[in-house]
Design a protein around this nucleic acid. Structure first.
Length: 442
DNA sequence: TCTGGGGTCCTAGGACCC
DNA sequence: TCTGGGGTCCTAGGACCC
């Protein structure tokens, strides 16, 4: 049995924890660069504001309706997320962090231990919900069902129906059938815009309809095995397990950093400056995860909204001779890759780096003929690099991001205004992670 | 030059998620 | 003028190998 804990309007809820005056009012949080809406309070949803809507298109409406607008503050959200996940991890045995605001729970083993005194799974879920709210101020809903897909579906319904008090347990076939009938097919986990369109065109309108299609049909029209699994999960047969997140953190298979620039860039040195900064960020995340990257990708993009909307993005990939997490090495490689992609005269609006093929250090590298690589020299270089990077991370952690960086990351002329930095006009303080931003109660 | 099946690896792209 | 960022998984096709 799976549980799904999902925070309600997470980013808005984080802002509300520190500004109770926002309670009951329409609130939205904007994406990076204040580009579009990525979190909405219930009141903002009621005004018809949509997820992903560009800010500039709804600016007037936001003003007119006196919607409270915030730039995203990932330092704050990340820290609040850690608090929620930590509480869940300390309360139930198997927790898989699925995203910044969601976690799957393994409740299967728990059923047999529940006693009349502890109550049933609904009671347990209810206690979790109350516990998260009491300890972090974040409201959550819980769905419980035999598969992850059904737990997601139960969670949706728990959110929508106030009468359920934030918890829905699909504990019988009848209740599952009822729940499937409530949900439009496009709201099923794993059904996006394309598939929703295809499905409704074929007369499949609800989750219940989808649960009745044949495996062959699902394979043919919903992306092969993915579709087949999706349908099985709706029928109540689990096709995906729980991957518990050890020590409350998530291990990534790839790590990336990309941004839309504050203004379009046409000089190569400026784009290289941005890329260097992105490499630095990604490498830092890589080291925090304790990994080395074997594959580096760089991409640069022109505007998606211009006349030549297709083929606006190009990428180049490099398999590194030796896996590394050294910012200097990765920056030099990224500069090489940029050289392959650069078109003189083009105007770029976005760039990014992706580090993949992640592995833990110490993996024995075999030479061309299967012999162990000569370690002495390599190990010494590796040791010095690790020391240097540890010093870099230490200084930046202590004195703030960007205190120590490569000259390349400063961009052309080694400083001045950073041309790729975007807008964040309404960012709240990092209440929980910066001493200077600590809230003072008078 | 063609004959044939089976395997791996890489890349590009599509679809989805939050 | 302004339209996010960071992930996952899967498929298909080509190169290359035996």
């Amino acid at each position: 049995m799976f549980g799904l804990v999902d925070c309600n309007n997470f980013y808005v809820s984080c802002e509300r924890v520190f500004q109770p005056r926002l309670e009951g009012r329409p609130v939205v949080v904007l994406s990076n660069n204040d580009g579009c809406i990525i979190s909405r309070s219930a009141e903002a949803k009621a005004l018809g504001l949509k997820m992903g809507e560009p800010y500039f298109q709804v600016k007037e409406q936001l003003q007119r309706e006196q919607v409270q607008v915030f730039s995203s503050n990932y330092t704050l959200y990340g820290d609040m997320s850690r608090r929620v996940m930590h509480y869940l991890g300390a309360t139930v045995p198997g927790v898989e962090i699925y995203s910044i605001d969601e976690a799957f729970l393994d409740l299967g083993g728990l059923e047999q231990h529940l006693t009349p005194y502890l109550g049933n799974l609904t009671d347990l879920a209810q206690r979790l919900r109350v516990g998260v709210k009491a300890r972090t101020g974040i409201p959550v809903c819980v769905g419980v069902a035999p598969t992850k897909t059904l737990a997601k579906l139960a969670n949706r319904l728990a959110k929508k129906d106030a009468g359920l008090d934030g918890v829905l347990y699909l504990d019988s076939a009848q209740r599952r059938t009822w729940a499937l009938g409530q949900v439009p097919v496009g709201d099923v986990w794993g059904v996006g815009r394309q598939y929703a369109h295809k499905l409704t065109a074929a007369g499949i309108d609800s989750a219940a309809d989808l649960s009745r299609v044949s495996e062959a049909w699902a394979r043919k029209f919903l992306g092969g095995v993915v579709g087949a699994r999706l349908v099985r999960e709706l029928q109540g047969y689990p096709c995906s397990g729980l991957a518990p997140s050890e020590d409350g953190t998530l291990r990534r298979q790839s790590i990336s950093c990309s941004r839309t620039f504050g203004r379009p860039l046409r000089e190569r040195a400026s784009v290289l400056g941005a890329l260097s900064a992105f490499v630095a960020r990604a490498a830092e995340k890589l080291r925090r995860q304790g990994d080395l990257a074997h594959v580096l990708t760089v991409f640069i993009s022109k505007s998606r909204f211009g006349p030549d909307a297709g083929g606006h993005s190009r990428s180049a990939v490099l398999t590194l001779p030796v896996p590394t997490n050294d910012t200097r090495e990765l920056t030099a490689r990224a500069a090489q890759l940029l050289g392959r992609l650069w078109e003189p005269g083009a105007v770029y609006v976005k760039a990014g780096v992706v580090m993949a093929g992640l592995e833990a250090p110490g993996g024995q590298q075999l030479g061309l003929f299967g012999e162990a690589a000569p370690l002495a020299a390599g190990a010494a270089v590796e040791g010095r690099s690790a020391q240097m990077m540890a010093a870099l991370d230490g200084l930046n952690a202590r004195f703030g991001r960007g205190t120590v960086q490569l000259a390349a990351a400063l961009g052309p002329k080694g400083g001045g205004p950073v041309p790729w930095k975007g807008q964040a006009a309404w960012r709240t303080p990092a209440y929980t992670t910066r001493l200077e931003d600590l809230m003072v109660v008078k």
